[in-house]
Design a protein around this nucleic acid. Structure first.
Lengths: 142, 142
DNA sequence: ATACATCCTCTAGCAACTGGAGGTTCAAGA
DNA sequence: TCTTGAACCTCCAGTTGCTAGAGGATGTAT
């Protein structure tokens, strides 16, 4: 049986995060010692590893919840998982597009800065005036 | 003089967001009508446009605060603004690298899915077992 | 004079954690 | 067996950058 600290180390998670996952129902309530401390088995280790890996791939917790439901029901058709992964892929691709535009703009700003003082700073000027931008970058969220 | 709603429309900001910026000291406290409604002038319009444009380029509010300080003090040397922009550029480039790795992994997952049921789903399998991943993707934050 | 869009303040919520206070439990060494 | 001290417990608040809603006041046009 693993303590929460050991589980944390093994999965590269913070202890508080594990408790948080329990609180929101993503991790089950584990066994406890007489004194009330959590003790975990291998099933929980696997589950947490799955969650963390999915998080590393950028899946939101809601999506991970759905994926976990699927692993718990091996008979259900796979296309749901496929769907979720495709959705995530699309999101990643959108974000990349957006970041590409930002990078272009930022590079240009930095390159044009000739090191005077704030009054004639190109960086500040570009920020002041959107029309100086060559690319579109209209969303704000990440 | 502009109402908050007009200011919002002109800058593509929500009304609440403007009030929020005021609350955190990013926007100044504007004049008020006798009845207590906010009225804005052109300086505030410019300032908000600056903020919004910076947000579109991904600058966090803290960085924007520094940039605004610089525009308010035109004598200060420009390299601070340059620094901030370079920092932001670096961040964007890091994120792009990370997303590239994620995209690779997700593409592979989706491609290998042959459409059976959950038990033999490649998507779920890859998520279960990190060692199936070819690329590094070890940070979690966006 | 009245309608009604817009404004006001205040509070709470989102995602996904993270940190700390203040107190208990567990395991190892003397 | 006792004692130390690391690791555990619960609960609450904070992070970032907004967004939504309740419940009520104001401003403007007819």
């Amino acid at each position: 049986m693993l303590t929460i600290g050991t589980l944390a180390k093994r999965t590269g998670t913070k202890v508080q995060t594990i408790r948080y996952y329990e609180q929101i129902g993503l991790m089950p309530e584990p066994d406890r010692t007489e004194g009330g401390q959590r003790r975990y088995g291998d099933a929980e280790l696997d589950r947490l590893a799955f969650i963390r890996h999915s998080r590393q791939l950028g899946f939101p917790l809601d999506a991970i919840r759905e994926l976990l439901d699927l692993t718990d029901a091996p008979d259900r058709p796979c296309h749901e998982a496929d769907e979720i992964a495709r959705r995530q892929l699309k999101l990643v691709e959108q974000r990349m597009e957006r970041l590409k535009a930002l990078r272009t703009e930022l590079k240009r700003m930095v390159k044009e800065c000739s090191g005077g003082n704030a009054a004639q700073c190109r960086v500040l000027e570009v920020l002041r005036d959107h029309s100086e931008c060559l690319t579109e970058h209209d969303q704000i969220g990440a």
